[in-house]
Write a protein that binds this DNA or RNA. Sequence first.
DNA 1: CAGCTTGTAATTATAATACTTACAAGGTTC
DNA 2: GAACCTTGTAAGTATTATAATTACAAGCTG
Lengths: 137, 137
Amino acid sequence: MNSEYSIAVHILSLLNRGDGPHSSEYIAGSVGVNPVVVRSVTGRLRRAGLLHTQRGVTGATLTRRADQITLLDVYRAVDAPQSMLKVHQKPNPNCPVGANIQCVLDDVFSQAQAALESRLEQVTLAEITSALHEKAS
Amino acid sequence: MNSEYSIAVHILSLLNRGDGPHSSEYIAGSVGVNPVVVRSVTGRLRRAGLLHTQRGVTGATLTRRADQITLLDVYRAVDAPQSMLKVHQKPNPNCPVGANIQCVLDDVFSQAQAALESRLEQVTLAEITSALHEKAS
DNA sequence: CAGCTTGTAATTATAATACTTACAAGGTTC
DNA sequence: GAACCTTGTAAGTATTATAATTACAAGCTG
């Protein structure tokens, strides 16, 4: 797992403040990464339909209200792995266990992943913003 | 996330068949990794109290019944990360968002992680063994 | 046009993961 | 006890994943 996901949430939180357009360089300063990384993540969010940008013009804008954007939307947008739990790749097909373990684990891991995603779906960007204000005060 | 976790489940599944002692080299053949990796994972499982081994003597034995071992026990045993969702490490402390985003995300990610672990806790090694038999037949 | 922006490909560092070698510690067999 | 197994670990290497950086085309704005 890389940290694109949390970077994406950070970017969206900045946009949700609504205080004028922010360049990728400004955002990069807040996130603590290279501006290219910000533009890359922003690109994914745009392709997922969460925000709008335009070549040459500073800033990005959310395409819908913050309470209509869940952390699961963001998770899917950044192309996060299908399951965070990794199955080893080369079990021996000639062993009864090795031949079937991948299939069995895929099933179990999918269920665990679904539980995690379900929790993410219950949190909106608006709630993140609220929590940030809470902490800041 | 590395694949030690699924390797651990694989090893325990082999032990749970009860068909004689298996050397780390035999197990490695089924799992598809180097014997040293098997011994390393076995070591973690031993330190977590899930199985017993002895230097010089072939094989390992479970310390309790398979229906008393959950996948969460195994997850904890292999020293898996506290949260699979990674927070970016260098947000700008001088920015209202950057200063608090880690804290807020840690909280949300912990909840998602708890949901995942809760699901793992509901699955036992005995059920994995059953599923393997099911597939094999 | 000059100077900014975003979008993206390509390259280089860096870090995480996996593999392998090596060997000590200990058991078993003859 | 000697030869030959085993497990337990440390240390080094290779491979891969991640992040940072460079470079530049495409496009807006004054």
